[in-house]
Deep mutational scan, measured.
Amino acid sequence: LVRYRTISKIPQITLNFVDLKGDPFLASPTSDREIIAPKIKERTHNVTEKVTQVLSLGADVLPEYKLQAPRIHRWTILHYSPFKAVWDWLILLLVIYTAVFTPYSAAFLLKETEEGPPATECGYACQPLAVVDLIVDIMFIVDILINFRTTYVNANEEVVSHPGRIAVHYFKGWFLIDMVAAIPFDLLIFGSGSEELIGLLKTARLLRLVRVARKLDRYSEYGAAVLFLLMCTFALIAHWLACIWYAIGNMEQPHMDSRIGWLHNLGDQIGKPYNSSGLGGPSIKDKYVTALYFTFSSLTSVGFGNVSPNTNSEKIFSICVMLIGSLMYASIFGNVSAIIQRLYSGTARYHTQMLRVREFIRFHQIPNPLRQRLEEYFQHAWSYTNGIDMNAVLKGFPECLQADICLHLNRSLLQHCKPFRGATKGCLRALAMKFKTTHAPPGDTLVHAGDLLTALYFISRGSIEILRGDVVVAILGKNDIFGEPLNLYARPGKSNGDVRALTYCDLHKIHR
């Protein structure tokens, strides 16, 4: 019993810090008490220290592992850092350059016999395009090294910054494609005289377009951006097909006994025919423009016929181009109408809503002055909100995010209106959640004399007048207030005048 009563005193000691020596009952000389009392004092002292730490809000209350900052290894790049964003855009520009100039170089340097010394005699450094290609190869190699040090988000939505895990993730992902696209074939085969082989191998750079397509997928929600990307894709495919079309004609031209190829026909049409040795002929500019003209006309199913396939190889390629053109029509131009419709969806919704308003007016036989006010209010409210119901949009977000959005939407009023000066951010967040926005066209009466005042109004834009009878008592403008002081009276009061809008007004109100 003594032991039980001794232990039962522990909660009292913990909360009230009572010393055991003052209790005459606990001072009985028993061996059990002498053993338990020192333990009680020690526990009391420890609990006292913990309570003191909690009340003082000291940093040592938290466990040590929670006080440590997340460790980022040296030379690790955050995937959302500004440097990584700028670097990704730079790589994107280099990939676009590669997609345009690599097929052009591979096709127009394929057994090209233009006048001038061969590239091997001039030297590697004197070729501007080769120098640019070398810079692109170096940048792609540097990009691989950067990807080995860039964080990523795993399946659990955690940012991984450990170098080993980053390397394994990159090896399992895009490393092989990036490595093949970054191989400097110019340096590996330079001086061997195989410019045709170098041009063909350099087309491996186009593998990076797969990554670019995935990154550009984030802009699919913007109709104008999608339309622009589709047109660029169409032009890029036409450019690639033009390079292939020229390569076919250029390879067949020296081996044909009869002059029936499209390059021969082009030379005869523009007065620059090929001679018996295969030299001469149109310039590279004429060849490229004509090839691009043929691919565009074939892809769009126009086909004027002034550039036509004559050999079997050219006919087979033309059939493939027609098939590609039909697929592009289905996948690209078939979506253009939907994209344009999405661009004008706001206008369509406006006309639909206006039609419903006019049908309501016609069905209920609203008189002319009231009908005009109804239409003007709808037009003004639509121009202010673009038909978007803010309350319906915010309803799907958590309250903390709703408060931040409301604070942002009402920031101008909260910053410049005098009653809100000096208020804490928590108070402003709470008030912003209570605001209701209303609009009024010129001549609209917001409050009639004798109406119950259940709200306090803040003028965000425009001006109003307060009338008693036919006498203008006051004219209020931006950041002015009218209405009933909230919670100042037990019952809502009545208006002693009319409140009429002089201009288009936007008002925020808080109800009782």
Rank of each mutant, 00 (worst) to 15 (best):
L67A: 04
T102S: 01
Y104P: 01
G422T: 09
M256R: 12
F420G: 02
W75V: 04
F304L: 01
Y170V: 01
S277Y: 01
S105T: 08
K84F: 04
P82F: 05
S412W: 09
L93K: 01
G281T: 03
D268E: 14
A167S: 04
V132E: 01
P367I: 01
L90M: 10
E314Q: 03
Q127V: 06
T352D: 11
Y80V: 09
I135H: 01
G164W: 14
G422E: 12
N275S: 09
H448L: 06
D137Q: 11
L413P: 09
L201F: 07
V168S: 09
F420T: 01
L279V: 09
A338F: 15
M231W: 14
R208I: 04
S298Q: 14
Y329Q: 15
D143L: 01
S308Q: 01
I237H: 01
G305H: 01
A125L: 15
V136C: 12
P398T: 03
L370V: 01
P163N: 03
D217S: 05
K395E: 13
Y350M: 04
L370T: 01
L431V: 06
C400N: 10
V100M: 01
H416R: 07
N312P: 01
F304N: 01
A423N: 01
M179V: 11
P273I: 01
V447N: 03
D143P: 01
T347Q: 07
P128Y: 05
I339N: 04
H408F: 04
L227R: 01
T445S: 06
F108M: 08
R362V: 03
Y170K: 01
P117D: 04
E196H: 15
I248C: 01
H169N: 09
E376C: 11
Y246N: 01
N275D: 04
K418P: 10
P273R: 01
D137L: 01
L67G: 07
L207F: 09
S298Y: 04
I340D: 01
V160L: 01
T98E: 03
T311R: 01
R218F: 01
V131N: 01
F333Q: 05
F397L: 08
G305D: 01
E121H: 15
G303S: 01
S326Q: 07
D217M: 08
G426M: 03
F171T: 05
L343K: 06
H264V: 04
R211E: 06
I138E: 01
I388Q: 12
K215I: 01
D133N: 12
T233D: 01
W245H: 01
I72G: 15
I72S: 06
A403H: 03
Y384T: 06
F304Q: 03
L109P: 01
I146F: 05
S81P: 01
Y246Q: 01
L370Q: 01
